[in-house]
């Protein structure tokens, strides 16, 4: 179990983390979701004992990040956002190196990495620096898992990765969870929040919200509507004339419209009619995590 209590960290004038508190249960996939600059990497670097917080404390399975940092390093695996393996060693040599570093052998936990390693095996003698992006990442994941960690930290493993490869990566994470490993994963993609058991939504060094994706969606305040737009730009221009406590923003091919007070719904219907839409074009919808994030950020 991870306990993070009131952690703050500043770099010169920038407050990277402001009083961050949350807990992660054993065996869950916990997502830290937020844009670049939210503080995700700083948080991970503190938890994997690479840097110290200015204030606050944290423990991983009972070990304190300050006093017991050596113990923590034994029980965690870490996949950094930047490729950090030895480019001049072969795939096999990298894996063997990391296993040995933890006093293990590849064979000991082979079962755990086998599904991922089997895809790399044809290239096992190739230098790690000469692999494709996707393969590099799979090798890095093998190296982070080869000592069977209790907690696995993955810092933005899917950033810049196409939707198909992202799906594939998340199915690997589900398999890792089945092995009883706790997974902390950070991502800037809001849609990936729904693939986690629980998430923390982060922005400007603060946790805006913590909970299961279902709970976060349930706590969306007010009503959300979607209006189908054949052309978004002219529609946005028209909406600039709408009054009342109503927020709107494009969402794919629809305009999402959040109405804080039920009393304003009539106002919205009248407005939509006025700009030449039928009432059937406007539908109440269930918010996504991205809608919730926008609400938490902006209004």
């Amino acid at each position: 179990m991870l306990k993070i209590a009131r952690i703050s960290k500043s770099f010169k004038k920038v407050e990277a983390l402001k009083d961050v508190t949350f807990e992660v249960e054993n065996g869950e996939i916990f997502g830290v979701v937020g844009p670049d600059g939210a503080g995700k990497t700083t948080l991970f670097n503190i938890l994997v004992t690479l840097i110290n917080p200015d204030k606050g404390s944290a423990s991983i399975n009972g070990f304190n990040i300050d006093k017991d940092y050596k113990k923590i390093r034994e029980v965690i695996g870490y996949l950094p956002g930047q490729f950090s393996l030895y480019p001049d060693l072969s795939c096999y040599e990298n894996l063997d190196f990391f296993a040995t570093l933890y006093g293990n052998s590849i064979e000991e936990n082979y079962e755990l990495i086998q599904p991922i390693w089997s895809q790399l095996e044809p290239f096992k003698d190739r230098r790690a620096g000469r692999l494709s992006g996707g393969m590099k990442q799979k090798l890095a994941l093998c190296c982070a898992l080869v000592h069977r960690p209790q907690v696995l930290f993955l810092d933005e493993p899917t950033t810049g990765v196409d939707p198909v490869s992202r799906r594939e990566f998340w199915s690997i994470l589900k398999e890792i969870k089945k092995e009883g490993i706790t997974v902390l994963v950070s991502t800037p993609y809001m849609d990936e929040a729904t693939l986690c058991d629980r998430v923390g939504l982060m922005q400007n060094g603060e946790l805006l919200k913590i909970g299961s994706p279902e709970n976060i969606v349930a706590e969306f305040s007010g009503l959300l509507f979607a209006l189908r737009a054949s052309e978004m730009y002219p529609l946005l221009e028209k909406f600039k004339n709408l009054s009342g406590n109503i927020h709107y923003y494009p969402f794919g091919q629809q305009l999402h419209i959040a109405v804080s007070h039920e009393a304003d719904v009539g106002l919205l219907y009248d407005f939509v009619k006025e700009i030449g839409y039928g009432l059937l074009d406007l539908q109440q919808i269930t918010p996504s995590i991205e809608d919730c994030f926008i609400q938490l950020m902006a209004y």
Partner: peptide, 9 residues
């Protein structure tokens, strides 16, 4: 890439 949902819009 990596930009927050409001600035993205």
């Amino acid at each position: 890439s990596g930009v927050d949902p409001i600035v993205r819009r």
